[in-house]
Amino acid sequence: MASRDVFTADEVSEVMSRENVFDGAFKCLRRIWSDPKALEARQLSSSEYRARQLERELEKLYSPLYDDLIGQMGGHPVASAESGSVVIMDALSLREGFQLEREFQEETDWEVELDWAPVERLPSETNFITQAWFDSHAPSAVNRDDFRFVGDMNVPQLPGTSPEYVWTRYPDKRLESAMKGNYSTENVSDIYADVKALLEEIITESVHSEFLVSSDHGYINHLGNNPYSLRDDLEEGLSGKFSGRSREVANGYVYQQLEEAGVIKRANDHYMVAGHYSWTQRGGTKRIMHGGLSLPECMTPVLRINTETA
């Protein structure tokens, strides 16, 4: 797929001319993921490929892409909320964010706007971000009067404080089992439908009319073709040293080799796999992962909803 299939000429110009290249990338990702059929089984592979190719081309055009992304971490809107309801949906990505924006605008009279924010910190793992936001090792362990953890599709009584914080285990709970090995056991579009229904119930149950909906991180989906290729020695290095998309920094020639090739990046005493590189592991390769350094993992959706419209 040529870059012209991903970018329009105007979008190329806008991405590279903006003060923040990720704002331009956000606009390109909107064109890919706001399509009503983007998450459906027949189109998902194509949507994912276009998003990967977009990121690959951006990195070629703008070599500091990942260094800039690392530099923008911190100051997430969740951390500075002062009122209303803050809903953190574990692993909600821009894929789902664009669909929620489009459908809520079409189906409700709510005011709905979508923007993006970089993850609070790296690696983009829930435990690190929960520690940064709530000084706890996991969302289920947070013990605060203004916080509720929702572990399934049933919404408990919400705090009613301002702000109130609601952390849902979805969609990550379903994504973890959605694609194992080479087989899909659940459709991403079905997972999205549950996420939308859960969010609607939270909005209905809350005493608030203003909502900030976001996530701790997004995710990589390795479904379908991938424009990121690895030399045999680099693939062997990744498969031997990485069980996921991040690991603690360690000494060794293999890490040096991977870092010099731009396959991994270093931040916060961790190495993270950059972009959409994938590698084969024994026992089947997970198709959905997070913890690395890529646009769909590290650009989180920031959905602002006002249900009390004039």
Score class of each variant (00 low, 15 high):
residue 64 P to H: 08
residue 65 L to T: 05
residue 67 D to G: 11
residue 68 D to K: 10
residue 69 L to D: 03
residue 70 I to M: 07
residue 70 I to L: 06
residue 70 I to R: 08
residue 72 Q to H: 08
residue 73 M to A: 12
residue 74 G to W: 01
residue 75 G to T: 06
residue 78 V to H: 01
residue 78 V to A: 04
residue 78 V to C: 01
residue 79 A to C: 14
residue 79 A to G: 15
residue 79 A to L: 12
residue 82 E to K: 15
residue 82 E to Y: 06
residue 83 S to Q: 13
residue 85 S to P: 11
residue 86 V to R: 06
residue 87 V to E: 14
residue 88 I to S: 02
residue 89 M to R: 03
residue 89 M to N: 02
residue 92 L to N: 03
residue 92 L to K: 06
residue 94 L to I: 07
residue 94 L to A: 07
residue 95 R to T: 00
residue 96 E to Y: 09
residue 96 E to L: 01
residue 96 E to N: 05
residue 97 G to I: 00
residue 98 F to T: 00
residue 100 L to D: 08
residue 100 L to Y: 04
residue 101 E to K: 00
residue 102 R to G: 05
residue 103 E to R: 15
residue 104 F to I: 09
residue 106 E to F: 04
residue 108 T to A: 06
residue 109 D to V: 07
residue 110 W to M: 15
residue 111 E to F: 02
residue 112 V to C: 02
residue 115 D to Q: 11
residue 116 W to M: 00
residue 116 W to S: 01
residue 116 W to E: 00
residue 117 A to G: 12
residue 119 V to L: 06
residue 120 E to V: 04
residue 120 E to L: 09
residue 121 R to F: 02
residue 121 R to H: 05
residue 121 R to C: 13
residue 122 L to A: 14
residue 123 P to G: 03
residue 127 N to P: 04
residue 128 F to Y: 11
residue 131 Q to Y: 07
residue 131 Q to A: 13
residue 132 A to E: 15
residue 134 F to G: 02
residue 134 F to T: 12
residue 136 S to Y: 04
residue 138 A to S: 12
residue 138 A to Q: 04
residue 140 S to F: 06
residue 146 D to Q: 10
residue 148 R to M: 01
residue 150 V to G: 05
residue 152 D to Y: 03
residue 154 N to P: 01
residue 157 Q to N: 15
residue 158 L to P: 09
residue 161 T to W: 08
residue 162 S to A: 09
residue 164 E to C: 09
residue 165 Y to M: 14
residue 167 W to F: 15
residue 167 W to Y: 15
residue 168 T to C: 09
residue 169 R to D: 03
residue 170 Y to D: 10
residue 172 D to C: 03
residue 174 R to Y: 12
residue 174 R to M: 13
residue 174 R to Q: 12
residue 175 L to S: 04
residue 176 E to K: 09
residue 177 S to G: 07
residue 178 A to W: 12
residue 178 A to K: 07
residue 179 M to Q: 13
residue 180 K to F: 06
residue 180 K to A: 14
residue 180 K to M: 10
residue 181 G to A: 05
residue 182 N to C: 06
residue 182 N to A: 10
residue 182 N to M: 10
residue 188 V to G: 00
